[in-house]
Design a protein around this nucleic acid. Sequence first.
RNA 1: GGGGGCGUGGUGUAGUUGGCCUAACACGCGGCCCUGUCAAGGCCGAGACCGCGGGUUCGAAACCCGUCGCUCCCGCCA
Length: 598
Amino acid sequence: MYKSKTCGELTARDVGKTVTLAGWVHRRRDHGGLIFIDLRDRFGLTQVVFNPQTAPDAHRVGSDVRNEYVIQVTGVVEKRPAGQENHALATGEIDVHVTAAQILNAARVPPFVINKNEDVDDALRLTYRYLDLRRERMLKNLTLRHRVVKFMRDWLDARGFIEIETPILTKSTPEGARDYLVPSRVHPGKFYALPQSPQQFKQLLMVAGYERYFQIARCMRDEDLRADRQPEFTQLDLEMAFVEQDDVLNLVEELFTALVKQVAPERTMQTPWRKFTYDEVLDKYGSDKPDLRFGMELTNVSDIAANSQFAVFKNALAAGGQVKGICVPGCADYSRRETDELIEIAKAKGAKGAVTMALRADGIHSPASKHLTPEEQNAYVERLGGQVGDLLLFVADQPKVVGDALGALRKELGARLKLADPNALAFAWVVDFPMFEWNAEEARWDAAHHPFTSPKPSDMHLLDTDPGAVRANSYDMVCNGYELASGSIRIHSRELQAKIFSLLNIDEERQRARFGHMLEAFEFGAPPHGGMAPGIDRFVAILASEDNIRDVIAFPKNQWAQDLMMHAPSDVDADQLQLLHLQIVHPESQAQYGLDKP
RNA sequence: GGGGGCGUGGUGUAGUUGGCCUAACACGCGGCCCUGUCAAGGCCGAGACCGCGGGUUCGAAACCCGUCGCUCCCGCCA
């Protein structure tokens, strides 16, 4: 070993000991005589002192080193002179008086500052990720991530779950997200796919009788990136047999409640978690993953507007629509430009506009005032609980448009006005999702969650008559405006599964080709089962107060799915392609082959 | 595929109603001084044709057009 102690463990109890430390030069303070170096390793910082009088050779080494040099020092732990302690440092009571030192490796001047947590261009951070990872921020985040995963493993293990790995090379399922494909060398023209999730495998493990399975599972989806979406990400994938919806929910709620108490005890959390139906959250928040750290709920005023002479409201209601509003605290003095901006947000979500009502000390100011009676205006104010100083926003349209528009405004204004307590974790369940969504483009029903989700028994009779009204045994876990997990109770009957496939427009032949193994498995004694899959990257990002999941992933991709450090994706040799029976047709030359651009 | 934001020494920013910019500040970097600092201090110094290309103008970091890169969002994410 190059070291006898780490840089994070020496205290006053170690005074007098001779120790050897090794690490990186975090910071160097050269007094001409004495040199102080904060030596860094993963475990902390220790101040080492070079004295030219007592150890001239070592002092010469101390003079030569620069930031980020890797050095090894041997010396004696001494108590710092009274008043010279550094209370910001765990090892601040002592320092190590160096008797011998050597440079293990020199370092170029780094492209950005390692010893400070200052914002650096993301592309530069990703290009030199191994340097970025040296910084305290990333070390903290990855350590937190480790603790989260460790807790999950231990907690589930203690409850009889076992962790089982499932294949990374598997089969393409064209439903859902785009697959990452891997060409087969042995089978010309055939491809594996990387898993979008271990969904089918975990269900088959239930058929196999494992009853309680989990996996820290990597999932890959070839879709465009966002701050909370990477092409590969990690889920706590879990599945249980002989359970109903509440069994899964209770278990996961217990797990996360205990987890937060353990790894982030300073965060506040409301327990038990709130529970909404899908219809309720859309009605109240205009989103299926609302940030519940603040109110500003969507309030229906259709009944008041029913008697209105205001054409915007009247026409929307006549067309079967609704009128809803939100009360934005303290924004009555918004300028025309600011309210126009808000109206643009509503328009971007398909609304024709938004009606503003500013509640100022001298009365109500609204572009719609001349169309509204004072009684009507007062009724709106009262319904929304508006106070002087508030700004009311109304949208009149079909329910989906109203929800989308006001939901977007609520989200934007919540962020702008900093309404959310950054220390709070507002967990909630959303249940009773619809089973199907109408795909207008393809003129068919799509699975809202996935095709293995079971319908609610109470809605089973609607499958043939009104698929759009069927609710599923599926549920989401949301937190602070993020969807943290989805899950469902699965289908375990062959007949029902085949029926759902058919409703999803998958004919019998394709059922056999794509999902024959699932249907067959259900013929061999499949138990009732269900589960869910919380996203670990998103959860850790929330705990770490990071806006982008990149900051809780060691080696993430940039927005164009590139690894700027490894330079992936990259060209491959012609031989490699030949071996895989592949030929590349670049987009610019597709036209000459008579192919459409993708 | 579409929309917004950003791009100025190694890093982070200022400058952006065209002229005082021969581009400022902090950190970092190099040298010298300095024996208790810990964001050490003091002095000196190097380092940027302002992402790139074109244009407007007597004059462009700034305005216009194009382009590239990064980023956020919409679409997409069973």
